[in-house]
């Protein structure tokens, strides 16, 4: 199988630099990193990809059973690393991808030598002694929100996502298409993301790890950032002066600065 095509892999930056893999979270695709890539391109080999089911990945490769657990997404990461024969790469994962990176580093330690976790959360749903910020009903509500915004997907979006090279004007019409995903696949990713519990996996992390959190993030509140920091021995926690869940878009300078500072110190 052609993994690079399946995961819509893009390689840019300095071919002689250390590989930095940028992994998008639930919602959109590799375009999320477009303000980050320029900050890394000079010194690093930058690898971008879309998880199967997102962006311009090969939707025919989607399997509900594989992607019903984060391990399935972690296999995407490992397979991309293998396809490019990356060694000792730095994995930068946003949101749920931060945890996917933890799993991938566990199964392929020779491939991933350091982690940057942007707004990570190992568990979104509260339980007795842990506050993730959400109840199970909240997650059901999100699934409903997804549904109501995907009504017209199959008719309007599918041809564009499939890559309709002979009708480029279609892409122009669909202003929201960056984050357009097949509703069934989005539902699977949403369930897998928001119902996952990766708290126990954090202890196993042994590679140098940078955790980036925002001062105000509904999805990954600060107490969750502190939890991740506490569970990963030797990790660094940087609180960015940013609101929302996507500091790489809302506060790109601060985010890029924290990442490049961490990368420079890895050498």
């Amino acid at each position: 199988m052609d993994i690079e095509r399946r995961n819509n892999v893009t390689v840019t930056g300095n071919p002689r630099g250390r590989a930095v893999v940028l992994a998008h979270g639930f919602g959109c695709d590799q375009n999320m990193w477009r303000l980050t890539v320029p900050a890394l391109a000079e010194d690093y080999r930058v690898v971008l990809f879309d998880y199967v089911g997102a962006g311009r990945s090969d939707l025919s490769a989607f399997s509900e059973s594989r992607y019903a657990s984060l391990d399935g997404y972690a296999r995407d990461v490992v397979e991309v690393c293998e396809a490019l024969d990356l060694r000792d790469a730095v994995f930068v994962g946003h949101s749920v991808s931060a945890m996917i990176g933890v799993l991938a580093a566990g199964t392929a330690p020779e491939r991933i030598g350091a982690l940057v976790m942007v707004a990570p959360s190992p568990r979104y749903i509260d339980d007795a002694s842990y506050r993730g910020g959400f109840s199970a009903e909240d997650i059901d509500e999100l699934l409903e929100s997804l549904e109501s915004n995907y009504l017209g997907w199959s008719a309007a979006m599918a041809p564009v996502i499939m890559g309709n090279a002979d009708r480029p004007e279609l892409g122009e019409e669909l202003t929201n298409s960056f984050c357009a995903t097949d509703p069934d696949m989005a539902r699977v990713f949403a369930r897998t993301t928001f119902l996952s519990d990766s708290r126990d996996d954090l202890k196993a992390v042994t590679v140098p790890t940078l955790i980036l959190e925002c001062t105000q993030d509904v999805i990954a509140p600060r107490e969750v950032g502190a939890f991740v920091h506490q569970m990963i021995a030797g990790s660094e926690l940087v609180t960015l002066d940013a609101t929302g869940h996507c500091p790489h878009l809302s506060a790109p300078e601060a985010t890029n600065g924290a990442i490049t500072d961490f990368l420079a110190r890895l050498r």
């Binding site: 999320m32 909240d138 509500e141 999100l142 999805i219 996507c246």
Partner: peptide, 13 residues
């Protein structure tokens, strides 16, 4: 809350 999640993962980016 569901709307907040959708906002953060889709709308805001």
């Amino acid at each position: 809350v569901g709307g907040k999640l959708y906002h953060e993962t889709h709308f805001a980016p």
